[in-house]
Design a protein around this nucleic acid. Structure first.
Length: 269
DNA sequence: CTATTTGTTTATCC
DNA sequence: AGGATAAACAAATA
């Protein structure tokens, strides 16, 4: 479920706990969400208080005390929540941080594609520092964008937009929305897109990220009907711009929705 | 029972 | 060697 804006929405769920300390750590040890991490290490959070948090693409990081870093990735079905006093962990809760003045921070994920990271170190951990520039940051330059597209020149642009090292936070619906706004056919090989269309694609990527954060990131509002978003999963859905039927098919390994009458550009020029 | 899912990693193919 | 693609992961839902 979560892409850039949904991740921001969930990250905020834990922010009311800033300044409060952890009294107990409950883990579902051995759960896939911990991967190579020994979940027992998380007991290091006991006694530390939540101090700071950042989001980046689909990743979030929470600092406890001065040197405890907790990373959360929601995968496909993960979510974070803050629960009231006396909360009883549910079946798919993998991490529960009980807070000193009551309540708990919870990470839940039925499918376990999500991931919890933990590091104890003075500075930002390596897995956070190596992230590439956010699409909403000044570091997301045309030069970097061009180099990335050229390097993945044979892959369909839809697949390239989903690559987190180039477009952190972009997921399936955002990629479709970006391509629809830029009027580029999703199967277009990335290297076949000419400079004018690249400028369009770069700009629309930034727009969709900002729009998604504004609309979904705060309170998960429903986007307006002039986005592709509201039409993409409906059978018989129509393009808000051309009024013609939308199409769905797997491209780049993922179900893709586009407007054949609107997204006519297929490369070159 | 089958097909679907807004994600990532690994294996395999080219 | 490095990029492209498919499979695997696991569970809920339609």
């Amino acid at each position: 479920m979560p892409e850039l804006a949904e991740v921001e929405y969930y990250r905020r769920k834990w922010l009311p706990a800033v300044g409060r300390s952890v009294t107990e750590v409950h883990v579902h040890a051995g759960s896939r969400v911990f991967r190579d991490l020994d979940a027992n290490q998380l007991s290091g959070l006991e006694g530390a208080s939540l101090e700071h948090s950042e989001g980046h693409g689909k990743q979030m990081i929470f600092r406890f005390g001065r040197s405890h870093w907790l990373g959360v990735h929601l995968g496909m079905t993960g979510s974070t929540s803050m629960q009231p006093v006396g909360y009883q962990p549910a079946r798919h809760d993998h991490l529960v941080l009980v807070l000193k003045k009551g309540g708990a921070l919870v990470f839940t994920d039925p499918r376990m594609f999500g991931r919890i990271r933990y590091s104890k170190c003075p500075d930002l951990p390596e897995w956070w520092r190596r992230l590439t520039p956010a699409v909403t940051s000044p570091g997301f330059t045309r030069a970097r964008f061009d180099a990335f597209l050229d390097r993945r020149g044979k892959a369909p642009i839809k697949a390239v937009l989903l690559m987190q090292e180039g477009f952190p936070g972009v997921g399936n619906w955002m990629a479709d929305e970006i391509l629809w706004r830029a009027r580029i056919h999703p199967a277009t090989p990335a290297g076949q897109i000419g400079p004018r269309k690249r400028a369009e694609l770069h700009a629309r990527t930034v727009d969709v990220a900002h729009d998604a954060l504004r609309v979904i990131g705060n309170d998960w509002s429903t986007p307006p009907d002039d986005w592709l978003f509201n039409h993409r999963w409906k059978d018989g859905g129509r393009c808000p711009r051309s009024g013609r039927p939308l199409r769905r098919a797997p491209i780049g390994g993922r179900t893709t929705c586009w407007s054949p009458s609107w997204q006519v550009y297929r490369g070159k020029s």
